[in-house]
């Protein structure tokens, strides 16, 4: 029992159906997943195998999902969905920043009621955080719309990490990024894991050697990948 206590996020019998053909087709059925704190789990699989659906289900962002989810051994039904999402943070594949500046986007999580009473990071802290991910040339007052795809991806990941969630769910974080941005995203991810956070990362491309666990989602089943593929 003691090893189970260290598990941050657990899914048991998770089943999601494709919305358009509700009658039969399950994207995946009866899926189990354990995520421990301070680990990086990579999930790969063919296009359309349901990798994004899995992340959305884990973040409780998908309707009509059945099965059980636990966070720190507390069942999902007993956790307010907004509190859950603030601790199990999903980052969409396409970094969608709101209209406004880099600064307004970075502090946006603290404008939400779920974080009322929590002090947002200061401008100095935000500046240091941007410098730390290779965005030292980007002013806090830069319009978010004027960032490149790679810069926006880093700002969006930074925004999530700064809220200090327990687990981050990354949806193809380096798809369509330039090499420099992909490298920065990978090291941001590694630093978050190093500080005790858990990451579940979906990748269409080949799984990465840095991952602690490698899983494959195909034909509705999630299996551990052993060795190199």
């Amino acid at each position: 029992m003691s090893w189970e206590m260290s598990l941050l996020l657990r899914a048991r019998g998770l089943t999601a159906t494709r919305p358009s053909d509700a009658a039969s087709a399950a994207v995946f059925a009866d899926l189990d997943l354990d995520v421990a704190a301070g680990t990086l789990t990579d999930v790969s699989g063919p296009s359309g195998s349901g990798k994004t659906t899995l992340l959305l289900a884990l973040a409780r962002l998908l309707p009509d999902v059945t099965g059980e989810l636990y966070l720190d051994d507390v069942i999902a039904a007993e956790v307010d969905p907004r509190m859950w999402r603030s601790r199990v943070a999903y980052l969409p594949q396409r970094a969608l920043l709101a209209p406004g500046t880099v600064h307004s986007n970075l502090v946006q999580p603290w404008t939400l009621r779920i974080r009322s009473g929590v002090t947002p990071p200061s401008e100095g802290e935000l500046r240091a955080a941007l410098d730390g991910v290779g965005l030292d040339g980007i002013g806090l007052d830069r319009a978010a719309a004027r960032l490149s795809v790679g810069q926006a991806a880093r700002v969006a990941l930074l925004r999530v990490v700064l809220t200090a969630p327990a687990c981050v769910l990354l949806d193809e974080p380096d798809a369509s990024l330039d090499d420099e941005s992909a490298k920065q995203v990978a090291s941001m991810t590694a630093r978050f894991v190093g500080s005790g956070g858990a990451v579940v990362r979906v990748r269409h491309a080949r799984v990465d050697a840095n991952a602690d666990r490698r899983m494959r989602l195909a034909d509705g089943r999630l299996t551990e990948v052993t060795g190199r593929d």
Binding site: R82, S86, P109, L112, R113, I114, V160, T163
Partner: peptide
């Protein structure tokens, strides 16, 4: 809808 998903994932209420 994309921005709404990102906001909801950050813990936003439907109103937010």
């Amino acid at each position: 809808s994309g921005e709404i998903l990102a906001l909801t994932a950050l813990g936003a209420t439907p109103w937010e």
